[in-house]
Write a protein that binds this DNA or RNA. Structure first.
Lengths: 200, 200
DNA sequence: GTCTATACAATGATAGAC
DNA sequence: GTCTATCATTGTATAGAC
């Protein structure tokens, strides 16, 4: 009993294919610019299949968002358990997030587009929560470091913004200017931020 | 001879109103999700007026992009002429950009959405050029500071990424999480980056 | 330059057979 | 669960009068 999709198990079902295909298209072109016809064509199913599983284009959209929230939670839980100094843990956060993005590339691009791009006639949803969770994670790591006395005591919000800014901007630029893409950049920028730009 | 639009001169013409209205709508909802019907309705003109001045929805879109490129160039030219230390000039850049954004809010949000959001069935255009120009500006200021010996010699690309990351991320978050918005944040983050997070 | 009226393709969604 | 065929609506764009 073999299957043809190259993946491990027998999830050749239409529902999974629709989820993945729609995520790709929403990432590539955006929600409003993607038609259900395109989705079902690329997924190799007919239109009523989509409406059978998800009720509407919006329903499919929400199903993807739920999936994304789960993925983020799993990654953050891993990050919280990582040991080491604050800097070590920030670097682990960077690496783990980058790894997650490689694994769920379309999902990341789609969510990112929804957070920072225009609301494309998209239904109500608290997209900012993804960012809030990231800020909270950084603050939590930083708070641990302050209480253990290993790091300068600065406003936690400020540090969280700085640490996330370096990661987020680097990831953005990897997409916007691929010719400058560099997976090591976030760590180097963090190093720079720890040392400071001033002359010693 | 007075006019009713509150602005200085007699530019009550349909073309200007269409440009501004379309910019607002593209910023609010995105290109694909905005219909020409909505644009002309809010602008208070009829459909053929739009097609008369801009030939198509795309033509209107391109006209807005040209306008945006001019605005950015003007602001950057001002920034290049500002005097002071590198840090002074970075801060002036932050302030001048923030001022520009306040003045052309919809234009900024629209462009930003195009750079970082999904291509919403939008015609070909080198949106990344806006980011490239910003990076170049920061590098130029930094290079001046290095040659005058006032600042640590670090890879210019790295510094440019760091300086822009702080500004860009702060501006993003002002939009995404308005409850945390703070116009002073970019400067404080820059201060932090100059000093470094490490204990002295 | 600006209008009314309309052409015509594409959209999201469904009915009903299998 | 999945199909074919079709619906009502909305989309961009234009013709032709003024």
């Amino acid at each position: 009993m073999q299957n043809t999709n190259g993946r491990g198990s027998l999830e050749n079902n239409s529902r999974e294919r629709l989820l993945e295909t729609a995520t790709e298209l929403f990432a590539e072109k955006g929600y409003a610019a993607t038609s259900v016809r395109e989705i079902v064509e690329r997924a190799g199913v007919s239109k009523p299949v989509l409406y059978y599983y998800f009720k509407s284009k919006e329903g499919l959209f929400y199903a993807i968002l739920e999936w994304a929230a789960e993925v983020q939670q799993d990654i953050l839980n891993e990050i919280f358990e990582a040991p080491g100094t604050v800097k070590d843990r920030f670097i682990f956060l960077y690496r783990r997030v980058q790894e997650g993005i490689r694994e769920y590339q379309s999902l990341y691009i789609m969510i990112h587009g929804l957070i920072f791009g225009p609301p494309q006639g998209v239904p109500e949803y608290d997209f900012a929560s993804y960012q809030r969770h990231m800020l909270d994670a950084v603050k939590r790591i930083y708070a641990d470091g302050v209480s253990s006395g290993e790091i300068r005591h600065i406003d936690a919000d400020e540090v969280a913004f700085l640490v996330l800014a370096l990661l987020d901007f680097s990831l953005n630029m990897d997409v916007v200017l691929p010719e400058l893409a560099d997976p090591q950049r976030p760590e180097r920028l963090l190093q720079l931020a720890f040392q400071g730009l001033n002359k010693r």
